[in-house]
Simulated assay, not measured.
Amino acid sequence: MRAVVQRVKESNVSVDGEIISKINKGLMVLLGIENDDTEEDLDYILKKVTKLRVFDDEDGVMNKSLIDCDLELLVVSQFTLYGDVRKGNRPSYVRSAKFDEGIVLYEKFLEKLKELNIKFGHGKYGADMDVYLINDGPVTILLDSNKEF
C-alpha cells in the first residue's frame, strides 16, 4: 500500500462537478492499493498517516500529529500510485489492486478511521475525481508499506 500525504490548509474532492467531501486544515492522502496488500499493510499506512508528526508544536517545530492537533483527513483512492514506467512511456498498472479487491481495503481503511474517531472525508473509490487542495508548507510525504521508499 502506498500513500502520498500532503499537509493542507483545505482540500476537497468532487465527482461530476459536485463536491462530495471537503476538509479544513489537516492531511490529504492519496491512497494506492497493491494487488497483494493485506490488512497488515493497511494498518502500517494507517498508523503512519495518523501519527505522522508534520504539524507545528508551540515552538514552531513539526512535532505534532493529526491526532495531537485534532485535525481532519481527506482520503482519495489513487490506483496510479502503482503505475510503472520503467519499460516505455505508457504506465503499467499490473501491481494495482483490481476493483473488487481494492475497494474492500479502502473501505476498511475508512472504517478504522471511524474507530479512531478521526474526522475525515473521502472520495469515491474508482471514480474519476477532481481533487482541490491548498498545500500547507508545502509538506508532502511518501509512504509505502513495503518500505520501498
Rank of each mutant, 00 (worst) to 15 (best):
Arg2Trp: 10
Arg2His: 12
Val4Glu: 14
Val5Lys: 03
Arg7Cys: 05
Arg7Ile: 08
Val8Trp: 03
Val8Tyr: 08
Ser11Lys: 14
Asn12Val: 08
Asp16Val: 07
Asp16Gln: 14
Gly17Lys: 08
Gly17Gln: 11
Gly17Asp: 02
Ile19Pro: 06
Ile20Pro: 03
Ser21Val: 15
Ser21Glu: 05
Lys22Leu: 11
Lys22Ser: 12
Ile23Phe: 10
Met28Trp: 08
Leu30Ala: 03
Ile33Lys: 02
Asn35Asp: 11
Asn35His: 13
Asp37Ser: 11
Asp37Phe: 00
Asp37Ile: 01
Thr38Asn: 05
Glu39Lys: 15
Glu40Trp: 08
Glu40Cys: 07
Leu42His: 04
Asp43His: 15
Tyr44His: 11
Ile45Pro: 00
Leu46Tyr: 11
Lys47Cys: 08
Lys48Arg: 15
Arg53Ala: 02
Val54Ala: 01
Val54Thr: 06
Phe55Val: 06
Asp57Lys: 14
Asp57Trp: 15
Asp59Trp: 04
Asn63Cys: 12
Lys64Ser: 09
Asp68Val: 07
Cys69Trp: 07
Leu71Glu: 05
Leu74Lys: 11
Leu74Asp: 00
Ser77Val: 10
Leu81Glu: 00
Val85Gly: 02
Arg86Asp: 08
Gly88Asp: 03
Asn89Gln: 09
Ser92Cys: 14
Tyr93Phe: 08
Val94Trp: 03
Glu101Lys: 12
Ile103Gln: 13
Ile103His: 13
Tyr106Val: 03
Phe109Asn: 00
Leu116Arg: 09
Asn117Cys: 04
Gly121Ile: 01
His122Asp: 00
Tyr125His: 15
Tyr125Glu: 13
Asp128Phe: 07
Ile134Gln: 06
Pro138Thr: 02
Val139Pro: 04
Thr140Phe: 05
Ile141Met: 09
Leu143Tyr: 10
Glu148Ile: 06
Glu148Thr: 07
Phe149Ser: 04
